[in-house]
Every structure is written in C-alpha cells, then in structure tokens.
Design a protein around this nucleic acid. Structure first.
Length: 541
RNA sequence: GAGACCGUAGCUCAGUCGGUAGAGCAACGGACUUUUAAUCCGUAGGUCCAGGGUUCGAGUCCCUGCGGUCUCACCA
C-alpha cells in the first residue's frame, strides 16, 4: 500500500469500504452513519427478519385499535375515512377524557421513504410491496434502539415492532418499541415528492421506479395477476403448458427479422425464436391436443411505444377446434384477466376500463364483424370491387402496380380501418391470399378462417383455423420464399415441420395474444415500456 | 434507419440579450415527544453530456459525437 496520510490510511483500511476519493459528501455521510452502526454492534446489512406482517394487512387492522380511558372503558375510534370537515382528533380524545391508545402488536419491515425528525420523536414512513405506514419512534419508547434510530437515512431498510395506534392527527401509525436495522442504502434516493420522472432513469433504474414512482408497483403486480389469470383460465379448460426451444436453427412462424447467435461446440449459427407456432403444432401432431406456451419471443425490429425487441407472447392450439372456438377462448381469457385485476370494482363498472381520457368497454360479448363489412363501412368502397379498391389505394398513395389485389386491399385496410377499431372488436374472415397459413372457408376459398382482435387500434390477438394439409403448406412456404435466393429459401424451409404435418396434425384452432399489449390496455399504460420491467436500452456510457 | 425536441447539484427543475451558476428536496451543524412534502436558524454542494469552433468573454451561438423522448418506417 502506498504511503499516505494517517487519516487516509484509516479510511481506506475500512473493510468492504472502497476507497473514497470523496466526490460525494452525500455518500460519505451515509458511510459515516454505517460506521456508527458497526460501532454499536449492528450489522448494516441485516439478516433474517421473521414473522413480519405486510403493511397492507396491518393497515386493515385499524378497527382493532381503541382508546382506553383511565377507568378502563374502551372507546371505539372515529371512522377516519368519513369524519366531518375540520375534524380534530386531538379534541376528540380530550372530549372522551384522559386515556391511551391500545392496539394490536405488529411487526413490519420496509424502506424508509419519508423521515420527519422532531428531536426526541421521529416520524418515519416505511414502504413495502403492499403499501406505506408511519412509524412513531420516540427516544423513551424504544430505549437502546434510539441510537440506531438516530443513524437512519432515507432509503434504508428497517424492521419495527410495536403497537398499532393512531397519532394525534388521525394517522395510523406503529408506535415503535423495537427498531431493527436491516439494510443500509449508500446511495441517495430520488426526490421525495416528485420521485423519478426522467423516463430513461425510470427504465434504467427500475428498482428505484418501483419503489418511488406512484403506480409502478401496482402496475407490475397487475401484470403478474393478468399472466397468472391467463394460465389459470387455460388450465381450467384442459390446456397444457409447454416450453419450446428459444434457440431455433430456422426462425419460422412469423414474418420478422430474427436475432442471430452461435453455438460454439456444434459450430452452427442459431436464431432466437420469433414465434412459438411451429413447435406447438408439432406437439399437436404428437398428441398434446390442447397446448400452449406463454413466453418470450425476439424480433430484430425497431423500437416504439408498441414494440420492444423481446416481448411476451401467448400461443394456444386446440385440436378439433377452429377459429370460432378461439374467439370464445380469447374473450374468456381477457374477461377473466380483467376480473383478476379489478376484483374490487363493482360488477357494473368492472369491464369499463380507463384508457387515457377515454374508456374501453370490455363488457362481453365483444363485437364481431367481417373484414369485408368493416372495409365497406369505413371506406364506403365495396372490397370485392377491385377497380374501386385500387383507385382508393392510389388516392392514398399506396403502390398498386404489379401487386396482388388482396395485398392492396389490406394496405388500405391497415391505413383506413385499423386505427378506427376502438373495440374490443373481432375482425373476421380475411382475404385468403394475405394469410397463407390459414385454412380457407369450405364454401368460399377466397376467404380465410382468421380473426384479429383490435382494441384502440392495436392488434391484440390473431387466430386461425390452422392449415394441416402438408402439400398445400409446403407449396405456400415455397411461394412465400419465392422472392429469396435458393440458398436463403433452403435455409428457411422447415422440412421437419412439413414432415410432421405429413404424419397428420388434427384439425385445430390456433391463437396468438400479445401479452404486453394486453397488459397495456388493462393497466392504462400508453407505452409498452411501462409494462416491461427492463425494456431494451442502449448500454450506459 | 429518418426528422423534431431535450441533456444544468444525488433528485425535480429555473437560468432573460452571450457578461461571476440558481431554487426546492436530499446532505451537514443546531432547536423541537403527535409530525404529514413537518417547521425554524445556520453551512456546504457544479467537468452546465463530451469534444471542437466563433468571441475580449459561451450553460446560452455553430459543428461533430454520445445518450434520451416523441413522430415516421420495419414489426406485433
């Protein structure tokens, strides 16, 4: 160690304390308090803390708190949620007579989010996953632990044991009897009132966003509830959850550019999966008649408020079903998910969800209209009239020369119709030529048995009566790949998938749901980055 | 990938016409045993994203780069 001043020596020899060139007096102050805790024999990194109760549960026990008068009589507290304007609890207590607060013993732990030091009494708000509660920590009341209480900083994690009561201003509080130091925070937390507002910081440091930005924790807990509800609904209907490979040698099942990677031992290039479809259908062939996967797919495409390069997708396949079966399933999945996140809403309001300044009415059944009907409604043009559609397309600046009429029609649809579909609405019966992997209607081969669910102009679900004719499938694959070089098309033709179909895939309905987008709609989040914990960002620096 | 806007203290933000860098919160010292974004007195805290240019002088004007937000495109 290089020779240095005595003071610096002492500093740098503190175990587990990296050399402080002291750019941050804020950190230095926190480390000084940490050192004081060590002097007191307290581990600043804490340890196991058993039998704590969730703050949300503790808050529910307000009714057990009473005001006990000197003669032993117990008086129920006023209903603080419904007290008259200008109610003064201090006065109320004086009116009842001299007494003391009596409540259940509780034990809680959480991060310190507010700290009001009043000398020999400190008011500390702690927060756990379920909510906030105020601690009253008095010098006399906590005894030896007062020395610990004096070292507390915003952001530290503490445990507390004491009696539940109500302060003079009517605030539910834990009257601390013991204070347990659980974890030191050596960084300064965000501003206590505004929290984090810079979207970049919120995403990069999601751990801070979760604790300090209003609504973030409940939103991500809702996401978990939605996903759990979907799994429950599917399980109730006999669907089997599986895990397909995420590393594919052929990235099939959707039109998107894949991420590439490499396996060293086999020395082969691999792709991150862009869809779940082709392996789930193999499992239909294998006899898993109701099968789904809810998992991550990866698409090497742009980033937008509706797109993240990795996102969560649900794909469901039901043997002996068709797209109508999938429509009923979709509606059930979404309605059950809504019930899961809005358990406390009245039945009348449950399905009316806020979306920005608007409201989305999810009350089932959702509207169902055909592609052709909607085309006619929104554009005033008969979709069967190819000349009129081409004319409309040209007026919208859509290239028409040498393109299939259905492709042109669909571009018009995307341009003029989709944004108007506030929904929820099932759009059914697409032109067959734009969905090659779909079975056609028996009585009209120009129409595919497909639907998409639109809500607020966003495509939420996409379903088919699946094509199970191996010869037709192979032919369609080939024509899809026709534009590519032979080398590319060989690479992308999934021969094993065709072989599987040749062994016989039962007739089936298939469904895909964009989980992130569904969560956006059910949690009133205008950007996908608010429902993905760690969205892709450029690395720092 | 293209365009517009943005980057100032740990956090949230001001900064006029180009003329010595500001506030609140957080921090530090002090007072206070019923506070509510506690209050009061005092102190300290800056590579103004980075690099270059114009200028007597740049947080401010210009260029380049980095990062972000929004819109558009690919995609779901």
């Amino acid at each position: 160690m290089p020779s240095t001043t005595t003071a610096a020596m002492t500093e740098s020899e503190t175990p587990h304390s990296p050399a402080q060139d002291d750019q941050s007096t804020l950190e230095a102050a926190r480390r000084a308090k940490m050192a004081r805790l060590v002097e007191l024999g307290v581990d600043p990194w804490g340890g196991r803390f058993d039998d704590r109760q969730l703050i949300g549960d503790i808050r529910g026990r307000l009714g057990e708190v009473v005001y006990r008068l000197e003669d032993g009589a117990e008086v129920a507290l006023p209903d603080f949620a419904n007290v008259p304007e200008g109610f003064n609890f201090r006065q109320w207590k004086a009116d009842q007579g001299k007494g003391e607060m009596v409540g259940p013993q509780v034990r809680a732990a959480g991060r310190i989010v507010l700290h009001r030091d009043k000398g020999k009494l400190q008011f500390i708000d702690i927060r756990d996953m379920s909510g906030d509660i105020q601690l009253m920590v008095g010098q006399k009341q906590v005894g030896d632990d007062w020395e610990i209480a004096k070292q507390l900083d915003l952001g530290d994690i503490v445990g507390v044991e004491g009696m539940l009561g109500v302060s003079n201003t009517g605030e539910l509080s834990i009257f601390a009897e013991r204070v347990f130091f659980l974890t030191k925070s050596i960084e300064t937390p965000p501003e206590k009132h505004h929290g984090l507002s810079d979207p970049e910081l919120r995403q990069r440091q999601r751990y801070l966003d979760l604790t300090y930005t209003d609504g973030v924790m409940p939103r991500f807990l809702d996401r978990t509830r939605i996903v759990a509800s979907i799994r429950r609904t599917l399980a109730e209907q006999g669907f089997v959850e599986v895990e397909g490979p995420t590393l594919h040698s052929i990235a099939g099942g959707a039109a998107a550019r894949p991420f590439t990677t490499h396996h060293n031992a086999l020395d082969i290039d691999l792709f991150m999966r862009i869809a779940l479809e082709l392996h789930l259908k193999r499992l239909l062939v294998g006899g898993i008649e109701r099968v789904y996967e809810l998992g991550r797919v990866y698409r090497n495409e742009g980033i937008s408020p509706k797109h993240n390069p990795e996102f969560t997708m649900l794909e469901v396949y039901q043997a002996f079903g068709d797209y109508n079966a999938m429509m009923d399933l979709t509606e059930g999945l979404i309605c059950d998910a809504i019930k899961a996140v809005r358990a406390d809403a009245s039945p009348a309001d449950r399905y009316k969800l806020p979306w920005g300044d608007a409201t989305i009415d999810f009350t089932p059944p959702f509207a169902r209209k055909t592609y052709a009907e909607l085309f006619q409604e929104q554009t005033g043009v008969d979709p069967a009239d190819e000349a009129a559609v081409a004319k409309l397309a040209t007026s919208l600046g859509i290239e028409t020369a040498g393109r299939h009429p259905d492709v042109i029609k669909n571009e018009v649809f995307e341009e003029k119709v989709e944004d108007a579909l506030l929904g929820p609405i099932f759009v059914t019966d697409y032109p067959a030529s734009i969905c090659p992997l779909t079975k056609r209607k028996r009585d009209n081969p120009a129409i595919a048995e497909r639907f998409e669910l639109f809500i607020q102009g966003m495509e939420i679900a996409n379903a088919y009566t699946e094509l199970n004719d191996p010869d037709l499938q192979e032919e369609l694959f080939k024509s899809q790949l026709a534009g590519l070089s032979e080398e590319d098309s060989m690479a992308k033709m999934d021969h094993d998938f065709i072989r599987a179909l040749r062994h016989g895939m039962p007739p089936a309905g298939g469904l895909g749901v964009g989980i992130d987008r569904l969560v956006m709609l059910l949690t009133n989040s205008q950007t996908i980055r608010d429902v993905i914990l760690f969205p892709l960002l450029r690395p720092e620096k």
